[in-house]
Simulated assay, not measured.
Amino acid sequence: MNTTPFRAGHVAVIGRPNVGKSTLTNALVGAHVAIVSPRPQTTRHRLIGIASYSEGQIVMVDTPGLHRDFGSANATAMHKWMNKAARGALDGVDAALLVVRAGQWEEADEYAYQALQRESLPVMLVINQVDRIVDKDQLLPYVAEVTKDREFAAVALISALKRKGLKELTRDILKLLPEQEAIYPEDEITDKSQRFLAAEMVREQVMRQLGEELPYATTVEIESFEVDGTMLRIGAVIWVERNGQKAIVIGKGGERLRDIGTQARLQMERLFGTKVFLQTWVRVREGWSGDERALRAFGYHD
């Protein structure tokens, strides 16, 4: 008979941009609920990923990267939204994970740490991408350096991408959570709708394929989402800010847009477990990322 108490709670995943927060969320959930690309600031929304185990349930609150400049007067409406979403993720959580890259501690990491210090939360330091450190003898001095004069409930060394160290991480997270019943049914993996996830999967492909050319000038709106028997029929609009950007997304003879649609459709079919018919269009709305009204229209709201 298992005498270990069942624990459940919300855990905010915090850190500077592009340290692997969404990859970690997906790894613990066991499904691709949070989009991932090599480009910083891929995550724009607060997203919940639900990881259920026999010992407990961890409700991961994935967030955009915290960045000091995003809260400045010169920041765009999009950047202010992202900072607000990241900070808002700390409301009502039971613990937080501060995710950093192994071997690094930058000013933005310190900014994220100080933001967490203002909350009455247990904070675990999660050092990600340890597989990239060739000389493992460097890890102990690094851990000693980043934990000196900083308070953490625990420290975890992991590779989220390669799923290394996750069992120990899960065990230590559960220790920080209250004893209570599961918050969500065992078969749920996110709080987001299929419609939301479909838009994110299209945007993920735009970021992956065109991130260097159009890093932050695009967003995706689902114009239609219909159930047709066992098939989903989805219409997605990729919004850009200039006509030149539209041409880049479409590509020569429409090749780039077709590739984006194909890869996004395959990802949807894997996650939704059904056939998907996806149509995509590209449209222009000048300056949408700096327009709060446009952001609300595209789903960037509380």
Rank of each mutant, 00 (worst) to 15 (best):
K148N: 12
S159Q: 04
L166C: 05
D131H: 06
L166E: 03
K164F: 14
D137I: 13
D135P: 10
R132L: 15
L125G: 00
R150G: 00
V130W: 04
L140V: 15
V143R: 08
L139G: 12
I127Y: 09
L161I: 12
T147M: 11
R150I: 03
V146D: 05
E151D: 14
R163I: 07
L166I: 03
V130E: 06
M124Q: 07
V130M: 09
P122G: 01
V155E: 02
A144I: 10
R163W: 08
G165Q: 04
L166F: 03
V134G: 08
Y142K: 09
P141N: 06
G165T: 06
D131F: 04
V155Q: 05
L140N: 13
L161R: 11
L161K: 13
G165I: 06
K136R: 15
S159G: 02
V146I: 10
L139F: 13
L161M: 12
D149A: 15
I158K: 00
I127G: 07
A154D: 12
V130R: 02
L161G: 11
L166A: 05
Q138N: 06
V130G: 02
Y142S: 07
K136E: 15
P141S: 07
P122M: 03
R132P: 11
K167T: 12
K148E: 14
F152Q: 04
R150A: 02
D137Y: 12
G165D: 04
E145C: 11
V123T: 07
K136F: 10
I158L: 03
K167M: 11
D137R: 15
V130C: 10
D135T: 11
V134Q: 13
R163D: 12
I133P: 00
D135H: 13
D135K: 13
